[in-house]
Design a protein around this nucleic acid. Structure first.
Lengths: 344, 344
DNA sequence: TTTTTTTACGAAAACGTTTGCGGCGGGAAG
DNA sequence: CTTCCCGCCGCAAACGTTTTCGTAAAAAAA
């Protein structure tokens, strides 16, 4: 099954012109008479001519498409980011090719190779939880492939980055729990190799310290696979619950960890917030109908996607090599709901 | 900023061969000696040669990419479907280009034009709620562009379709409410022009009739924009609540409608299921931590995506025109949770 | 009128592949 | 000693563009 489109040749033949003339007319070149341009444009419009983007790509050496590597889209934070990416890309006539690493280092490498061999013009990346080594991206970056990181970024590559103010977001979340009177606040977080993990951890610790509390390593649990393996989260939670001094609140560091933790607590019949309070980083659109409604640190996901894409396209379209790289930090918002409120 | 890759020409020059020989060697042609093949393959591997997919596309007239049009990915049903699409596409070395209609007819048209002019080899489509007319797809289909519909399908185009058993899913959901003793069961659904809407509506009505109840038109509310406009859902719900005989249960027909309805009921302080019970079509991974946990009709979303993609690729790669089109119907699963349980 | 400039267009190469065909050399068959 | 065949490889065209360069004819300047 094939589907033949009209080409510049057909127009040339029909109008008794050369292909070059038609091409120039289509692009409004000054070396074509107004009359010819009108004729060509009219014919093109009438026959719904669209230049073949593949031929254009081959000629120009640019594909007008950008690749995206995220851990997974089945998650409100990332799907909102992608909404933002798409809106800008579309506006600037770029295609978006989305791939998912599922938090796997190997799949991240496979995706980056696939995308670059697919000749995307640039890459938007949020690292997988398993990733400890970014050589695969360094190699591509050295070859000149523009890339912008968001959310889970790396310091090893000099390029633009867009992140939320994770430190501040975590600080505020923890401070809120402290203000509510909780004292043994645990932290369930993602892989220790992720930038977001460290930043959020710092915010959490600082809030404790500012309240005169010493961060307790026993209360900090890492999930190396970012919660993609449910058992991982279950174990982290179990370890917390079996401490002699059980935590009275938990601060979870990502979307998936937050929902999984809430779900587990519910299954274990542990009342939230009466027995354990909960605050989580999440962009879930349903956080207000959770049981209990979940106090959340919300990231400006859509805006992050838009900003990231803007920066990437700037990079792609810049004539001269860019050396001035920005790290844009966007503020989060703490939405206080029931899961973190001190009862009685 | 450009990023030069190694081409067949470089290999040819290095090995003192012609480009055609290299090309044939790469593809294992029988008219090339084993030794030459070995040399070429070795050199290619060593220098990490990857054929330029754009040049291949131009030559072959196929782009090895498929376009997807869904209403929006910020929704567990669709993101799970896309997971399924991606897994098969990747496996068969196709790219996936995702676009969102946001339930808008105009954006759906714009997306279909954009994708087809981007020379995708085929289209995967779930219609927008606003769409009443599918001429834009008919035109593309007549030109020979392969397409497969899923979820929200149309009878006007003869091609493969993949849907859930909406009739049965709705029937079972309604019957479950009836078995729990509810009698005035309302139905909040999407646009009346959508296939899923009609099928679910039929299932709902049939269950009522089988229980000896007459479907009451006052209890059936349509949301022409599929719930993308929150006000729409609010109004539908308000109208139901203001009936002289208030419903004692609601059956919602889509992911977004379900979560929005639950959220509204909560804001209005209407106890679920005590005052009004709720069952909804939803693939939300968080349905079990909703307040109350939401009884859901779950669709096999991932499987639907996989099946759809399989069928599309069959269509794309088929030598002869396909005339035998299938409509695959997959069973849903009713997950009974708290929101539908009769209290006392 | 002759020369120069301008206008408007066409020819051809190039982007990186794939593929039909033609050719060269050597061994087998006549 | 010819003829034929076959294995192996290169030439060139093609996919649909863009772009450089060349060149007619018309217009302007001399």
């Amino acid at each position: 099954m094939k589907f033949e489109a009209i080409t510049i040749k057909h127009i040339a033949k029909a109008l008794k012109l050369s292909v070059s003339t038609v091409s120039k007319a289509m692009r409004g070149s000054h070396e074509i008479s107004e009359e010819t341009k009108r004729n060509v444009l009219a014919y093109a419009r009438e026959h719904n001519y669209k230049p073949n983007p593949i031929a254009q790509s081959l000629k120009r050496g640019r594909s007008k498409s950008i690749g995206v590597i995220v851990c997974n889209i089945d998650n409100n934070f990332f799907s909102q980011v992608i909404n933002g990416i798409e809106s800008i890309a579309r506006q600037k006539d770029y295609n978006v090719i989305i791939t998912q690493s599922q938090e796997s280092y190997e799949r991240e490498i496979a995706n980056s190779e696939h995308l670059s061999s697919r000749s995307v013009d640039g890459l938007i990346i949020s690292l997988s939880a398993e990733t400890k080594n970014v050589d695969h991206f360094i190699k591509l970056h050295e070859k000149g492939l523009p890339m912008v990181f968001f959310d889970r970024v790396t310091d090893e590559i000099a390029t633009h980055k867009v992140i939320a103010n994770n430190y501040k977001g975590a600080y505020e979340a923890t401070r809120h729990l402290l203000q509510q009177g909780f004292r043994r606040i645990a932290h369930i977080t993602s892989s220790g190799s992720l930038s977001i993990t460290l930043e959020r951890l710092e915010g959490y610790k600082k809030a404790l310290e500012d309240a005169g509390l010493e961060p307790d390593p026993d209360l900090i649990k890492f999930c190396p696979h970012g919660g993609m393996i449910p058992e991982e989260t279950r174990q982290a939670l179990n370890e917390l619950l079996q401490l002699e001094q059980r935590p009275d609140a938990i601060f979870t560091a990502s979307d998936r960890l937050s929902t999984t933790t809430l779900s587990l607590l519910r299954k274990m019949q542990i009342a939230v917030p009466q027995q354990i309070a909960l605050v989580g980083f999440t962009n879930s659109i349903s956080a207000d109908i959770f049981h209990p409604s979940l106090t959340s640190v919300v990231q400006p996901a859509m805006e992050m996607g838009q900003l990231t894409t803007d920066l990437l396209i700037q990079l792609i379209e810049s004539k001269r090599p860019v050396t001035d790289f920005k790290k844009r930090v966007l503020d989060t918002e703490l939405k206080i709901r029931d899961s973190s409120l001190r009862t009685q």
